[in-house]
Write a protein that binds this DNA or RNA. Structure first.
Length: 454
RNA sequence: GGCCCCAUCGUCUAGCCUGGUCUAGGACACCUCCCUUUCACGGAGGUAACGAGGGUUCGAAUCCCUCUGGGGUCACCA
């Protein structure tokens, strides 16, 4: 291109370029580099002596350039809008613009779908393709995806959340066992520095903050189904029309077309994603849920497989299926299964107090939840077998006699005793999951704990 | 600031090209009620949008203009 006069060497120093830019700004114009004449051989010799290296700039034709785009439609840039940009840097390396055009040609690339921020770059790539006699791929510029607060969704968002938490808690040193002092200092000193994933996760746990899922793997870790992610992502910026919004990859493959891609940036709605994931999980067969729950746990929750053993692990999955919104929910919400009986913490909140009858005396003659708990010790200990039907039958019989048939007033205190809170899978499944010995041990501890409450 | 692009419920969007069938449809969220041994699910209903102003037309969310608002880009970064 140099030989053909399509490009030329330019010797301008950084200082000279800065000065030119400043001048343009002062005149309220955008700076556009133009051919500034060929230096004399004396000048070149002097530059060489100074140790200056030239860049190679492309001599951009001074004509209007029409960018053809399958998404945004054609757009014409006025002549002179694209300047004589650098295609080879001082160090001899090609710039991105030059490299990508050559690469696309060599790779026989047919479609270039990229973010909208590349739109004006495309003009540069097109004039280069013309100059080099290359084919032109089909271009499509997709809108960016934004956060609900209108900021651009980016992998930096994780660090943003952590920095905010650190600042709020006014921490001066990294919490024990999260990141090293060196990492910590470097990270806090420069907003462009990102923590590695493992460190970020440890720090998030220590700070008790939720990291936003950004990378595909983050969503997988959180228990989102790959097919749901594809479905949902496709819907941010595209739609098949006819009010269809649930579809699989096969459908996407057949129906996707660039002319239905939306031009406006979409906000990423995690709540709707969760709803989609919930629907997909509810639609799964018990067998599929079991299989995929096992796969998920093998990678992200191995401790549950180890602690529960396969039979009880499968029961946990079955018992959690219909209330799960993600593949991770059976584990995320049932941590009480992992802790030792001695370490189980009882939650002292309104619902717990109400269920146990703490602070509010029961109506005349009625027993409190705590009373039921005391009575259930004997009932449960005497059970010949520890199965859901046996447990339910025993509890029903007890409730009929002592709780006016209201099974809930017996079940709820039991739930608190074994899980520490008012939320768990169905109670009889939960008791089987916890096991007889642990249930009885937890019952004792809960009674002791609740008896001490005012 | 120059240039380019965009604009429908809180959010994702259908409709716009080929004006009337749009008193603008769906989904998520939200509100109300129902179901329920927790949580969740589920069921029934409801609130909610064409950014503003001018045209063109018998008729405009749909076509044109202006304004306003938003985004992108102006590197020897990719």
């Amino acid at each position: 291109m140099l030989a053909e006069g399509k490009a030329y060497e330019a010797w301008d120093s950084t200082e000279e370029l800065d000065a030119l830019r400043k001048e343009a700004t002062a005149r309220k114009e955008a700076f556009r580099y133009r051919f500034r004449g060929t230096p004399s051989s004396d000048d070149i010799a002097r530059y060489r002596a100074e140790g200056r290296q030239p860049v190679v700039r492309f001599r951009t034709p001074q004509v209007p350039i029409t960018i053809q785009d399958e998404v945004l439609g054609d757009a014409t840039l006025p002549a002179g809008e694209v300047d004589d940009f650098v295609i080879r840097k001082k160090d001899g390396f090609p710039t991105y613009h030059f490299a990508v055009v050559v690469d696309d040609e060599l790779m026989r690339v047919t479609h270039v779908l990229r973010a909208q921020e590349h739109f004006t770059n495309t003009a540069k790539h097109m004039v280069l393709q013309d100059a080099l006699g290359f084919r032109r791929p089909t271009y499509g510029h997709l809108s960016i995806i934004k956060n609900p607060d209108d900021s651009k969704m980016s992998k930096r968002d994780k660090d943003k959340v952590l920095r905010k938490a650190v600042k709020e808690k006014a921490l001066t040193a990294p919490p024990e066992g999260t990141v090293t002092i060196e990492e910590w200092t470097k990270w806090l000193g420069d907003d462009n520095v990102q923590l590695d994933l493992e460190g970020a996760i440890r720090l998030a746990e220590a700070l008790k903050v939720q990291l936003p899922e950004i990378n595909v793997d983050d969503f997988r870790r959180s228990g989102y189904l790959p097919e749901t992610i594809c479905n949902f992502l496709a819907l941010n910026g595209w739609s098949p029309g006819h009010d269809i919004e649930k579809f699989d990859n096969e459908f996407l493959k057949e129906r996707f077309s660039l002319d239905r891609v939306i031009k406006t940036p979409a906000k990423f709605d995690r709540v709707k994603l969760l709803a989609f994931n919930t629907d997909a999980i509810n639609a799964m067969s018990r067998e599929d849920f079991l299989r995929r729950g096992r796969e998920h746990a093998a990678v992200f929750r191995p401790e549950y497989l180890e602690k529960l053993g396969s039979a009880r692990f499968d029961l946990l999955l079955h018992a959690s299926h219909e209330r799960s919104k993600t593949l991770d929910d059976p584990f995320k919400t049932n941590g009480f299964l992992l802790v030792s009986d001695d370490a189980l913490a009882f939650s002292d909140d309104k619902n717990v107090r109400k269920a146990l009858g703490i602070g509010a005396p029961a109506a005349d003659g009625a027993k409190s939840g705590l009373d039921h708990l005391r009575a259930m010790r004997g009932v449960l200990a005497a059970l010949p077998e520890w199965t859901q039907p046996a447990l339910e039958a025993a509890a029903n019989a007890y409730a009929a006699e002592h709780a006016a048939g209201k099974i809930g007033s017996v079940a709820q205190p039991l739930r608190i005793a074994v899980s520490g809170s008012t939320v768990s899978p169905p109670i009889w499944d939960t008791l089987v999951l916890v096991g007889r010995d642990a249930t009885l041990a937890r019952l004792e501890r809960c009674i002791a704990w609740a008896s001490g409450l005012g």
